[in-house]
Computed example of a mutant assay.
Amino acid sequence: MDAEDGPIARPRKGPLAPWLAQAAVLDALRQRAGDLPGAARRGAGRLGRAVAALMLPDVDDDGLSGSGGLSAMAWSRITFLEEPVCDGCGAGMADDHDTLSPGHRCLGCEAAPPAFDRARAAFVYDEHSRDLVLRLKHADRLDLVPTFTLWLRRAGVSLIEDCDALVPVPLHPARLLRRRFNQAAELARPLARASHRTYLADALQRVRDTGTQGGLSSRGRQRNVAAAFGVSRAGAMAVRGRRILLVDDVLTTGATAEACARALKQAGARSVDLLVLARVKSARALPR
């Protein structure tokens, strides 16, 4: 039987082919586990990821390994986000939502849609993954970028396939000088290169130094980033009429991502999707 006739076919061409194939492997395994109770289904999901990893090793076209030097224990504690997830904010949906149709949104996104069109995250930001993310952000662990790039490509395969260009969430120049690099840019640049998409490094700019968002409430974060982002004249020409994929490291309240999405859409972007390395576990809160 030809490989393309089977239920799990590996696409033969295209930069996203390995990740589309892995998605097909996992989808087929989920279908077979659909009638299992919740705990057994979660176990089947973990088994499915292991099987997919064996069938399609974590090595990209440049020969980069996806292990990132993580121990088996550290790897097992990371909660990777898989379908079903909310199409609007990327939050994981409950086990009893397995039969939801594609594009389903959580109650928070239904009641108050975010400024970005869709969102996906590679894993949950919690006590088990926080240190891993902060190693990149504050400890200059750029050696983790190849692994993170692979994870982002898997989580965002549909968003990457639909986009025209990738844009990182920018840092203010003063903070960039102190930190020496922008972690969002370090994620977006290799992701764009590996996916054969345009990378717009400077189209979106942080025009006001907002300071840290840590410790602020949701409304406080929204006020903190109000009018903090803008698009340069050259950037406006680059994003006009194009489908933009915004890239960042962490999604918490979504205030920063929404401010960026508004600025890009005001500059003429056709759509703005969001891809982050990690997001908090909870979905968007219902508006009060």
Rank of each mutant, 00 (worst) to 15 (best):
I244M: 12
L56N: 03
P190T: 03
D5H: 09
G214S: 15
G268P: 06
V51S: 09
D162I: 00
L47R: 12
V280P: 05
G156F: 05
R12G: 12
P113H: 14
A28M: 07
M93A: 10
G69T: 06
V59Y: 14
M237P: 00
A28I: 00
A234K: 13
L47H: 09
G68T: 11
A192M: 06
D202M: 02
L142T: 12
A115C: 10
R179P: 13
M93P: 00
C86Q: 11
D140V: 00
A33L: 05
G48H: 05
A119F: 04
A201E: 15
D117K: 13
P57R: 07
E83L: 11
D87N: 10
R10N: 00
S217K: 11
R154I: 00
L177A: 15
L191P: 11
R189T: 01
A257C: 06
A255F: 06
A50H: 09
H104C: 09
A121R: 05
S101I: 07
R130L: 08
D117P: 00
P146C: 09
S158R: 15
R221K: 10
G45L: 06
A234N: 07
G92D: 01
L191M: 14
Q213I: 02
Q222M: 08
A111V: 02
Q266E: 15
A23H: 09
V124C: 14
A115T: 13
P18A: 00
E83S: 14
L245A: 03
M237E: 15
T99W: 09
A228M: 05
A3I: 02
W151S: 06
W19C: 03
R32Y: 02
F229G: 15
D162W: 02
P11M: 02
R178T: 13
E4C: 04
L159R: 03
R242W: 10
C163L: 03
V169Q: 07
E127F: 02
R180A: 11
A285Y: 00
A285E: 12
